[in-house]
Design a protein around this nucleic acid. Structure first.
Lengths: 340, 340
DNA sequence: ATAGTTTCTGAAACCGGTTTCCTTTTCTGC
DNA sequence: GCAGAAAAGGAAACCGGTTTCAGAAACTAT
């Protein structure tokens, strides 16, 4: 059974392809009600569905976007993806999901492939990425929305979604200070990442604001994964500073710390208080439930897709840069406790 | 800057479009080395990249697949997706990721959209699905690979990946019996799902094999999510049977049980032993680490993509049904303990 | 009745590739 | 040196839509 094409519909309705196309899209001129009926009828009878491929080629729009994340397995991304997808679905967009696996090379290959597929836009949410990606996208004038990354280059069609870590981290610090903590540790993300440095700096800065000197802070570099947290804990415990509170760069790292603490016979929060960052659904499921600096995960995804739609809808010459900022907020659960 | 097309390359190399196409694809006839060089040169100089869209339209192949999962947030799917993606990436395929959100309607809409996009194949890994999906795909002769679902209809282009729960569940039961347990509970998935009934039946069957009668088993229906496990525990505790061991339909449910047990002051495994099913990375991170019936998550994804490739490569008339079976295996961690 | 609009529709070009078909060129072997 | 086969590559049709352009039909105003 050959596939039904627009030509079949046109023949059955006794009109031209152009008319069928017009009926379907509503654009370009007027259609007599009677004709419209005939066409709609034929479409229905034949169960015709237009080929997105042909449509894309002709119209230069694919109704498709790509999203690059480090790893779908990270619940943070899962939430973001949901947000993107829900809005995309509503507007008839499909989503290529791509895991970079924290690998810049692979990411670039993916970007190239997305360009070849002529996606209408790309979301870059991979924590490790490279300016090359943006450069390639830009060269092909494919708009992109980038999460939490300072774009340092000339890039007209790039929207940024910035995360204001300051607010939430300030709250976290004040919370810990209030509980009487005086010596701290931070398990950061890979310090090659600006976002990791941002979080670390914000933490250190607000500690300073509260009279805590740098020499009361241990910083250990992690990897944003469980493993990093697990490995970091012994290092922190061995430090002469003897921190009583740990702030991790994300929830996964905190999860690693919780696991390691059990093995090391350290009680959380009695011996050490712990604050994560992300607030994925996992945070509430940990034992004890994790106090964490919450990012609006789902909302970030939603906002990203909405931003892309905005870019796609605006006129060609309006290329003002869009920059959105989302805030963060401390969610207190049970991994933080008063330190006597 | 207009996009570079095959025509530009042809002009620059002083050959016809056909030749350029042949050089790129290697098929159809012979090319003189000298000509090939000229073309390759032009391609390089112009940084030409062929449009996948045009290519798809002409060749009727999109190098694209779609995958339907219930929810990316579930670590089980995350692993499967990784498996699919890695193989897909290797072979130059891209992946539309679609969350059905456990909603059959939405799933059908997604399937339709994938058909319109003329994907080369579809993976159905959503726990709740409908025969309509397969019917639509079939009508458009789009091959599909279905995970853990008994296809009850005429469906030539459908491959199945079955999961042999028997083996692992048998091990789980024997493990529990060996530990001295005599009274059991099972938190199932929605019993409208065949896969949920399978797991339940296998559990009950093997208990019977070990001399445990039905009246020593409590069955509570869950939802394969954390919430279901949380809600089920009180019900189990209230039962006159007083089970000492719980087997859950998946790890997420087990996670819910662990959470609820803490609130109910029940110790796991001292008071109640717990066995999950899936063995996502989460299992090992729970507290205590979860004993669980392991599915080869990543391998399932890999196998699925490999199976699809096999279908796509075989000749048109060879339509024998492919059925793969993967096995399961008990992984013992720390949620099961001897019952005195 | 006629000119001037406005409404409606079809023919054909086009999007950027692939593939068929056929012609030309280059090799073989004798 | 020539016939026949093999190698090489071009012209054009095609994939299934969209969009331009122009002409026909229907409607207004005079």
């Amino acid at each position: 059974m050959a596939r039904i094409t627009i030509t079949d519909v046109a023949r059955m309705a006794g009109v031209s392809k152009a008319t069928v196309s017009r009926v379907m899209n509503g654009n370009y001129g007027y259609i007599k009600d009677e004709t419209r009926e005939k066409v709609l009828d034929a479409i229905q009878k034949l169960e015709y569905r237009p080929s997105s491929v042909a449509r894309s080629l002709a119209s230069n729009r694919t109704q498709t976007t790509g999203i690059l994340v480090s790893d779908v397995g990270n619940p943070f991304y899962a939430n973001v993806i949901h947000g993107v997808e829900d809005v995309a679905f509503e507007h008839g967009y499909d989503l290529f999901l791509c895991n970079t696996n924290y690998d810049e090379e692979r990411g670039l290959a993916i970007v190239q492939s997305l360009i070849d597929k002529r996606v209408d836009g790309v979301f870059i949410m991979s924590s490790s990425m490279s300016n090359d990606w943006i450069r390639e996208l830009n060269k092909n004038s494919i708009p992109s929305v980038i999460l939490d990354w300072q774009v340092t280059m000339e890039a007209p069609c790039v929207a940024e979604i910035q995360i204001d870590y300051e607010v939430g981290i300030k709250q976290a610090v004040e919370h810990l200070i209030e509980l009487g903590h005086q010596r701290f540790a931070h398990i950061s993300g890979p310090l090659s990442l600006e976002t990791a440095r941002d979080r670390k700096d914000a933490f250190v800065y607000h500690l300073a604001e509260n009279g805590i000197d740098k020499d009361q802070i241990v910083i250990v570099e992690g990897d944003l994964k469980i493993e990093g947290g697990r490995k970091a804990l012994p290092e922190i415990l061995a430090s002469p500073i003897k921190p009583t509170a740990i702030f991790t760069a994300n929830d996964m790292t905190a999860m690693g710390v919780i696991g390691a603490s059990r093995r090391a016979n350290i009680r959380i929060p009695e011996d050490i208080s712990l604050v994560g960052l992300d607030d994925t659904w996992l945070a509430a499921q940990m034992d004890p439930p994790l106090t964490t600096v919450a990012l609006p995960n789902y909302y970030i995804g939603k906002l990203a897709m909405e931003t892309l739609l905005k870019i796609l809808e605006r006129s060609k010459d309006n290329s003002e840069q869009i920059k959105e900022v989302v805030s963060t907020e401390l969610v207190i659960r049970e991994t933080t406790e008063r330190q006597e």
